[in-house]
């Protein structure tokens, strides 16, 4: 009951939260403030500036550590009046700047994941290239909030920028961005011709040494938007099988996976946490020591509800076994 009362208060403030996020995306190109260094600081080598597949991070991994902070800040804004002030203020300055910063380690961890994924596609022999100026947030929250007018304008901007650089194939690295490019943009935009692939679909199995040295027991958690959204769920399993990593299937897996609770985090953090606890419980109940995720939102939500369980990204695990 307590939780529902909090949810209720949040819903009443939801229009304001939605407005802050909408304005940020449309004006600034990201839903919450993130320093440039966090967004693009993972680039530590000379990436090819041309190639067949554009490496599109969609900034989701980079944003994940910041989401929790901003949510905490919004959570503290109990008074509606203060909220309105903040909202007006946000028209001039990005208020999400005022939230506390995640630790350096957290930011670095995400950067490492992105670099790992880049290595995985690069080593698979794909001609892959990168340019930070056209690697943008894909408008996931505009879509989830149902702000289609804004999304259309925003998506056109993204798509035009990509086209102007001659991009027609992209590799995506998280399920939400993948879903936007594979399912949402094609139905929203006329003359849309970008082919999008999740990196999981493109990895060559032969780049791995097939002998896992893992002592821990793993359980696999499918993200909704990979499994149900774009039908990617057998690919990660094939890779783990190839390496010889043993993993346990939890209750509710593959297309029947169970949401981590992440998607309602910005509107009702407590409700979201309760679902996170429930799903993490199912995963841990399998007897596993570590949880394999494939989505920064899942990872962030599980980490938020438990500091004890080790939550890893699939790419961290498999990139250890590149020949």
């Amino acid at each position: 009951m307590e939780v529902m009362e909090l949810v209720n208060r949040y819903i009443n403030n939801s229009n304001l939260i939605i407005e802050i996020i909408r304005r940020n995306i449309m004006k600034r190109g990201y839903p919450i403030y993130i320093p440039n260094k966090a967004l693009y600081g993972w680039i530590d080598e000379d990436f090819p500036r041309d190639g067949e597949y554009f490496f599109y991070t969609g900034l989701m991994y980079q944003m994940a550590p910041y989401i929790e902070r901003i949510v905490n800040m919004l959570q503290k804004l109990r008074s509606g009046v203060l909220f309105k002030v903040i909202n007006i203020l946000n028209r001039v300055v990005d208020v999400s700047r005022f939230s506390s910063k995640p630790s350096h380690e957290e930011v670095m961890k995400m950067h490492k994941i992105i670099r790992n994924i880049y290595s995985l596609v690069y080593r698979s022999g794909l001609s892959v290239w990168y340019d930070p100026s056209i690697d943008k947030y894909a408008g996931v929250l505009l879509y989830e909030f149902g702000l289609m007018d804004d999304l259309k304008i925003y998506a056109e901007r993204i798509s035009d920028a990509l086209s102007s650089m001659g991009v027609n194939k992209i590799v995506t690295i998280d399920p939400h961005t993948t879903y936007m490019f594979k399912k949402v943009f094609p139905s929203l935009l006329e003359n849309y011709s970008i082919e999008a692939y999740s990196y999981l679909e493109l990895i060559d199995e032969d780049i791995f040494v097939g002998s896992s040295a893992e002592q821990n027991k793993f359980v696999i958690h499918d993200p909704c938007y990979y499994a149900r959204g774009v039908g990617v769920f057998s690919e990660p399993r094939k890779l783990l099988d190839r390496i010889g990593v043993e993993y346990i299937e939890p209750k509710f897996n593959r297309v029947d996976t169970y949401c981590c609770g992440g998607p309602v985090e910005s509107l009702s953090p407590l409700f979201s946490a309760k679902i996170g606890v429930k799903r993490l419980g199912m995963l841990v109940d399998t007897g596993a020591d570590e949880v394999i995720t494939m989505c920064p939102i899942c990872m962030a939500n599980f980490r938020r509800v438990s500091k004890e369980v080790n939550i890893i990204d699939l790419s961290e695990l498999i990139s250890k076994y590149i020949k």
Binding site: N8, I11, E144, V255, D256, C259, G262, S268
Partner: peptide
């Protein structure tokens, strides 16, 4: 409308039900 919003905005849009 209050209850309706509470119901609608707590949905995760995770698509489990759709299937």
């Amino acid at each position: 409308i209050g209850i309706l919003k509470e119901s609608i905005y707590t949905c995760l849009v995770c698509m489990a039900c759709t299937r």
